[in-house]
Amino acid sequence: MADIPLAARRAHRRRLTGWGFVGPFLVVFAFALVAPIGYAIYLSLFREQLIGGNSFVWFDNYRQALTDPQFWASVRRVAIFLAVQVPIMLSLALLAALGLDSARLRWAPLYRLSIFLPYAVPAVVASLMWGFVYGAQFGLVSRLRSALHVDLPDPLSGSWVLASIGNVVTWEFVGYNMLICYAALRSVPGDLYEAAEIDGAGGLRIARSIKLPALRPALVVALVFSIIGSLQLFNEPNVLHWLAPNTIPPNFTPNMYAYNLSFSGQEYNYSATIAVVMGVLTMLAAGGVQWYGRRRMA
């Protein structure tokens, strides 16, 4: 009987211990994640005016963003990017994962590692490298053009530049997405395949009835990351911008627009507004996919 209060005291202490473990993370979390978001929202409600200085303007900045053709041009670009590049990249990743898992591939680990390797390359280096390949001076594309006497399009011209950036992003992330899918496929117990084969299921039937359901959560994760990556596109176009300043303008993507607004333009309030709008749009899109994916699984 005497040890009940002791246990209760221990339990109470353990409650506080939990906070002790979580506390340090939460302090940094509050300072480096919550505070910037709050500050950006606060800034987005103000405007620096020539007359009257810094004044509270309610949602005027948001109204400005909604009617800003420069902003909408950037949103349209990343939307096209999302609609074209992401399906291509994820299909390639899915096919490669199915190939790795099919047991019909010799030296599968070699393929797995090699295709994943570009993920370790920093986006800046990847963009510099592909920039050299695309570029006019000693680019492979221009060299191929003169060697083969064929009229290859300029990868950095207006109609091709988005596709060229899509290629850099695909190169960087196809292996990562392949591994996410592959990990999901490997988690299917072998007995399930044995049973399906005994029941006379063919390869296609197995792919549809066993592999695709197992892949769905992984595809949802890959899709969420890809949506975030597309809507928040910055590194690749910002590096390539120097090679193609005319076809990659400062408002090429929403993030580049926000960055250049606060850097070249000193328009901090409007820059914060753009960041908030894009953050909300990204979370809505990513959250929507997650919600839809989960509902389909249930």
């Binding site: 910037p36 500050y39 910055f234 993030n255 960055y259 606060s262 820059s271 960041a275 894009m278």
Partner: peptide, 8 residues
């Protein structure tokens, strides 16, 4: 998305 707000 946090880079610009954190900078500000």
């Amino acid at each position: 998305a946090l880079a610009v707000p954190t900078f500000l």
